[in-house]
Design a protein around this nucleic acid. Structure first.
Length: 254
DNA sequence: ATGGTAGTTTGACTA
């Protein structure tokens, strides 16, 4: 079973790219972030024709998350546990093939110390509390975490030291999230540096490979033991009008 | 020290 996660940065803008990629790679599940479309605008029929069910939670202009799956999703939820649906569309969860799957889009945080930064850290605590209740399930949490977990996930750790997506409190929040029993699948198979999932559109970041690894597929321990491969589709950052993120993926022998 | 780009939307915000 191949599970991918991609911050698409506007689903309407990149629908054709998405469909071509689905056709070429046929993942079983795709978690999307920054769909930037309302539920009414979601291209359910085009994705159905491509062989995928859609579970989605969007809003106008910003954020928006979705799960595409070959298998029919069950028990779809568009909020953190026991909470009213957020004003910001950042979480959707579904049960697929007996796995509990989350597609999450963590707040960016804007600048260390800003109100948005505090919102981000608080959001991480809420997500952790929610996921801690899923403990005994087979669990996958995919998405744009907006945190580079370690220095090895950063092209220039000294330049980024203490900056947004790399600050100590953000990294601690990410670790505490993983402490509920989640494992970063990429690092099960790839330990080297230079593996990034996001490159700023500005300053020729991509050609210079000045990126960060802020997207991930996290799995609980028993699933992580069945993870046979993981990677990042760097090619998807190339070409005409790419997203600023590349898809990340993991394969499981279930 | 600044601004560089992109998406949504037409002014300004988010990233």
């Amino acid at each position: 079973m191949k599970i991918a996660s991609w911050n698409i940065n506007s689903l309407r803008k990149r629908q054709d790219r998405l469909l071509a990629w689905l056709e070429g790679t046929r993942p079983d599940v795709v978690c999307l972030q920054e769909t930037k479309c309302t539920d009414e605008q979601f291209p359910v029929l085009a994705l159905q024709s491509a062989g995928y069910h859609s579970s989605y939670h969007g809003e106008k202009s910003y954020n928006g998350v979705a799960i595409l799956s070959k298998e029919k999703p069950q028990d779809v939820r568009a909020s953190l546990c026991n909470e009213v649906i957020d004003r910001q569309a950042r979480v959707i969860a579904a049960k697929i093939d007996n796995l509990r799957l989350y597609s999450i889009y963590a707040p960016n945080g804007q600048a260390v110390g800003s109100p948005a930064y505090e919102y981000k850290l608080n959001w991480y605590m809420r997500l952790r509390d929610c996921l801690s209740k899923e403990k005994n399930r087979e669990l996958i949490v995919c998405g744009d975490f907006n945190v580079a977990p370690e220095d090895i996930d950063v092209h220039d750790p000294m330049l980024w030291r203490g900056a947004i997506m790399c600050s100590d409190r953000e990294r601690a929040a990410f670790r505490q999230l993983c402490d509920v029993g989640l494992i970063d699948t990429l690092r099960l198979h790839r330990q080297e540096g230079g593996l990034f999932s996001w490159w700023d559109y500005r300053m020729l970041s991509f050609p210079k490979n000045r990126g960060l690894r802020i997207d991930a597929v996290l799995a609980n321990k028993s699933l992580a033991e069945k993870c046979t491969a993981a990677g990042i589709e760097r090619e998807m950052r190339k070409g005409k009008e790419p997203s600023d993120h590349a898809p990340v993926w993991a394969e499981f022998n279930l």
